[in-house]
């Protein structure tokens, strides 16, 4: 954590951390404590009076069927996004690791989605699947499959999963490829001498050796799906139809800014914060351990 060799204490380190600490205090600690405070209050619709109600907001949330459903939906959504994105990029990375020429070109081509904003990604996929005039949706219709994600909940979920997973492929691909390329050539050669075919080599040598990368990416993908897909959902489905694609982050926003239920929204924020902190500590422990080796 601290360098063996370091400078002695003086005023300097305090000055160095000050900007970040001040910003953290003002824009994180203060809002976070506000959220915690508000999560313990019930405010009337005009914000004129409020009442301290302890954990009633939380109790209400967990007794609310819709919230529980949203929770489950978020888990499902994250799992689908992570699985889809990880498996596609794993296959692509394994192939890119195998070819001698062109690895760099493939990487350059596959890196694009990383740069695209979630909301733009959402817009692109909406265009492709727009009922009656989308390229893919009209194709599906001509095949006899009725597509209308504005009306059908499972199609809407499918679409946001695809859009979210698509955006994450680049990142996963980069890490998988880097992980595979850092495996010593001699190991692969030894396996080849042991007459293991390419597929067997992948499952018995390469895949186990990149487990740490896979694990790291799994956490990153889940965090991404939980918190960074707001733009996609907002532009593709607005959480609909009939809440079919409403995930936790979307609900916080919706209840707070649209529904103006400050207490309930704050309670949801607090729950999300606890979730993130948990995931972060989990991942941090993992990174720390890896660094030591």
């Amino acid at each position: 954590m601290l360098k063996q060799v370091h400078f002695k204490s003086s005023a300097l380190p305090y000055m160095l951390v000050a900007p970040q600490i001040i910003i953290t205090l003002v824009f994180f600690m203060w809002p976070a404590s506000q959220a915690i405070y508000q999560s313990l209050l019930i405010e009337d619709a005009f914000g004129l009076s409020s009442q301290f109600v302890w954990f009633d907001n939380f109790k209400e949330l967990f007794e609310d069927d819709r919230y529980i459903k949203t929770f489950g939906r978020t888990l499902f959504f994250s799992a689908m996004v992570a699985m889809l994105s990880l498996s596609v990029s794993l296959v692509l990375a394994a192939m890119a690791d195998r070819v001698i020429r062109g690895t760099g070109i493939y990487r350059t081509l596959l890196i694009w989605p990383y740069a695209v904003a979630p909301v733009i990604a959402g817009a692109l996929w909406v265009f492709l699947f727009y009922p009656t005039t989308g390229i893919i949706s009209t194709f599906l219709t001509s095949m006899g499959y009725e597509w209308n994600h504005q009306l059908k909940g499972n199609q809407a979920m499918f679409l946001v999963v695809i859009a979210a997973a698509w955006k994450q492929i680049s990142y996963n691909f980069l890490f998988f490829l880097a992980g595979m390329q850092s495996i010593p050539k001699s190991l692969i050669e030894a396996a080849a001498i042991d007459a293991a075919g390419p597929l067997k080599r992948f499952w018995t040598i390469i895949f186990p050796l990149i487990t740490p990368t896979t694990f790291f990416l799994l956490v990153v993908n889940i965090v991404y799906a939980f918190f960074e897909t707001f733009g996609i959902i907002h532009v593709v489905t607005k959480g609909g139809p009939a809440n079919a694609t409403e995930i936790l982050v979307f609900k916080v926003y919706n209840d707070g800014f649209v529904g103006l239920d400050l207490g309930g929204s704050a309670a949801q924020s607090v729950i999300l914060m606890i979730l993130v902190i948990g995931m972060t500590i989990f991942q941090f422990k993992f990174i720390e351990r890896k660094v030591e080796y």
Binding site: M1, L16, T24, G256, S269
Partner: peptide, 27 residues
């Protein structure tokens, strides 16, 4: 640097790690 409250500062910063604005958007 080795200074007082170093770890406190570290944890304070660390808590905000990966915590997107989306989560604490309203406050």
């Amino acid at each position: 640097f080795d200074f007082r409250f170093r770890m406190l500062f570290f944890w304070m910063i660390f808590l905000t790690l990966m915590l997107p604005v989306e989560v604490r958007i309203l406050p």
